[in-house]
Design a protein around this nucleic acid. Structure first.
Length: 572
RNA sequence: CGGGGUGUAGCGCAGCCUGGUUAGCGCGCGUGCCUUGGGAGCACGAGGCCGCCGGUUCGAAUCCGGCCACCCCGACCA
């Protein structure tokens, strides 16, 4: 490809509406342009890169035994009503009516369509297992799209769905997909972690998120500093230490705490730390109110409570409910004497010696409370959000928090959709069974953004070679020289004929302009052809990442580029 | 959906408060000269429904009202 004929509108200045680096650089490098909020056009350069990511997904999915399909974007409401998601999905599902007034939607994901397809075509265990995937535009009407391609409303996704005959087989498929994902993201040159994610009532480690490590990530990852345990915030377990301290002699004593109801206020008023307080949260579930006790400096992890109680809804109780169950006003709830609702305790509260708790009376707290003696706990467990420094659930290490961008998510669905939509088969005994499903997503366009987020410097993008729009940039400088242009043209032809994609900067520009653009575009290797080196019969080969330049003979360019690519693959 | 902000040339912005001649700057773009190893220089030039609609006024980019779009914070959403 020759740059003079290629639509690559680079910009010197950052676009005013971009906040994160990947968004700024993709716009500046002429890869994407915004059409409207959260919706982007891919220009030739951006699309080339995107297609490389797609191709890596394809190759690894195919290698893992999946088959590519292409499913409709416009979908009838009937299917969504069948699965129950027409009501549940909310405004993110873009709905519209066709000319016959039939309700439709744009597919934000394709469980319904694929399940419908498979239930029609597959009747026997002989046709299973089946693993189908597609690479396609998805539409989710995000309330607040942001960060360019990172959270768009329209985005490209690789989504796959597997159908197995048994739980064991489905588990095997899940592991194969997890391995395929490891290969995909490794090939894309990403630094990532597969983290355990909450899998709801199904239980077990049957959901993993693939997170690209980046400070600008929207998600928090919890990981161990000494073993390979990693989980997202919702899922992250905490090992509780054993507490032992002498049983106190004293008994609870009421103190007046005027105007102090939050943990910070109470701590300040009494001259204590937040961790000396046990806070009592009154929550409402579909099965009634409960109390959850947490150490003052800890935060509730709703998902843990939901899973523990096997409920689907949890909200903070309002003042009326609190008054009803505790007899006291909001802000002063405590566990002492609380008897008409279940009391859950996060295990960490048993490490609070001589605790402060709410008094269930206006502006009153109790001090000198021993959590082992002075109130009744129905069940204890892990109900709080992990914090940096907590103990790893798997080893003796400690947990740390970091930021990540979710680029992939795999999930064992079980029979949720096959049951709702009656996707069944006959087993060898002629008995009807529901298929066991799994789903596997990769945000293809987000991978591109995440890769740039992770690979850039002050001058621009530094593409990992496998997803770079081109592998080599050829930059002739000194346009008046016929020899230079001739050598450049020959290297260009040679590279293409040996299967290396090269972009030739044949524009009539000054060297500075060419170098700046080359750095901005982030093509991994640049061959500079100029007077000085050429006089010795050499061209320069520069590594965008290391900025190292070596002199090579024009005929050695191909092996040298291969060597550099090789070297890159080994360190990745 | 609530709060805040912005909308002026392809991009980035000034002008608006305090209404008034031909609406300006940088980058980019076109032509010519010159220059050619890190976004050169000079000269000439093209390019604007000042977001849209309405109002006030002799006169509106500027003041007032409504609408739209975009951005940020939050809530929402899984």
């Amino acid at each position: 490809m020759k740059l003079s004929k290629f639509l690559v509108p680079t910009l010197k200045e950052n676009p005013a509406d971009a906040e994160v680096i990947s968004h700024k650089l993709m716009v500046r490098a002429g890869m994407i342009r915004k059409l409207t909020a959260g919706i982007y056009s891919y220009l030739p350069l951006g699309y080339r890169s995107l297609r490389k990511v797609e191709q890596i997904c394809r190759e690894e999915m195919d290698a893992a035994g999946a088959q590519e399909v292409y499913l409709p974007v416009a979908q009838p409401s009937e299917l969504w009503k069948e699965s129950g998601r027409w009501e549940i999905y909310g405004k993110e599902l873009l709905r519209f009516k066709d000319r016959h007034d039939r309700e439709c939607c744009l597919g934000p994901t394709h469980e319904e369509v694929i399940t419908d397809l498979v239930r029609r075509e597959v009747r026997s265990y002989r046709d299973l297992p089946l693993n189908l995937y597609q690479i396609q535009t998805k539409f989710r009407d995000e309330i607040r799209p942001r960060f360019g391609l990172m959270r768009g409303r329209e985005f490209i996704m690789k989504d796959g769905y597997s159908f197995d005959t048994t739980e064991d087989m489905a588990e095997k498929t899940y592991i194969e997909m997890r391995d395929a994902y490891q290969k995909i993201f490794t090939r894309c040159g990403l630094e990532f972690r597969a983290v355990e994610a909450d899998s709801g009532p199904i239980g077990g480690s049957f959901s993993h998120e693939f997170m690209v490590l980046a400070a600008t990530g929207e998600d928090t990852i919890v990981s161990c500093d000494s073993c390979d345990y990693a989980a997202n915030m919702e899922k992250a377990e905490i090992r509780t230490e054993e507490f032992s301290f002498p049983v106190s002699e004293g008994s609870p004593e009421a103190v007046s705490t005027p105007g102090a109801s939050t943990v910070e206020e109470v701590a300040k008023f009494l001259g204590l730390k937040a961790e000396n307080i046990i806070k009592t949260l009154i929550l409402k579930t579909e099965n009634g109110a409960i109390a959850v006790l947490l150490r003052g400096d800890h935060e509730l992890n709703e998902v843990k409570v939901k899973n523990f109680l096997k409920v689907s809804d949890i909200v903070m109780a309002n003042a009326d409910t609190i008054e009803e169950v505790t007899g006291g006003p909001m802000g002063f709830s405590g566990p002492v004497g609380l008897s008409n609702i279940p009391v859950l305790a996060d295990r960490a509260i048993f490490g609070v010696e001589s605790a402060v708790v709410g008094g269930n009376r206006h502006e009153t707290h109790l001090i000198n409370v021993d959590p082992r003696r002075h109130f009744k706990v129905d069940q204890s467990g892990d109900f709080r959000a992990a914090t940096a420094g907590d103990l790893c659930p798997r080893c003796s290490g400690t947990l740390r928090l970091s930021r990540g961008i979710e680029v992939g998510h795999i999930f064992k669905l079980g029979d949720k959709y096959s049951k709702a939509m009656n996707a069944s088969f006959l087993d060898p005994d002629g008995k009807e069974q529901f298929m066991i499903m799994g789903c596997y997503g990769i945000g293809v366009s987000r991978v591109l953004a995440a890769a740039i987020e992770q690979n850039h410097d002050d001058d621009g993008i530094i593409f990992p070679p496998p997803i770079a729009p081109f592998t080599v940039m050829i930059t002739p400088v000194g346009a008046k020289s016929e020899t230079i242009n001739e050598v450049a043209g020959r290297i260009y032809e040679d590279l293409w004929s040996s299967g290396i994609d090269a972009l030739l900067d044949d524009r009539d520009e000054r060297p500075g302009v060419k170098f700046k653009d080359a750095d901005l575009l982030g093509i991994p290797f640049r061959i500079t052809i100029g007077q000085k080196a050429l006089a010795q019969g050499n061209v320069e080969l520069r590594n965008r990442r290391t900025k190292e330049t070596i002199l090579v003979k024009p005929e050695d360019v191909i092996p040298e580029v291969r060597k550099l690519t090789e070297k890159w693959a080994q360190r990745a």
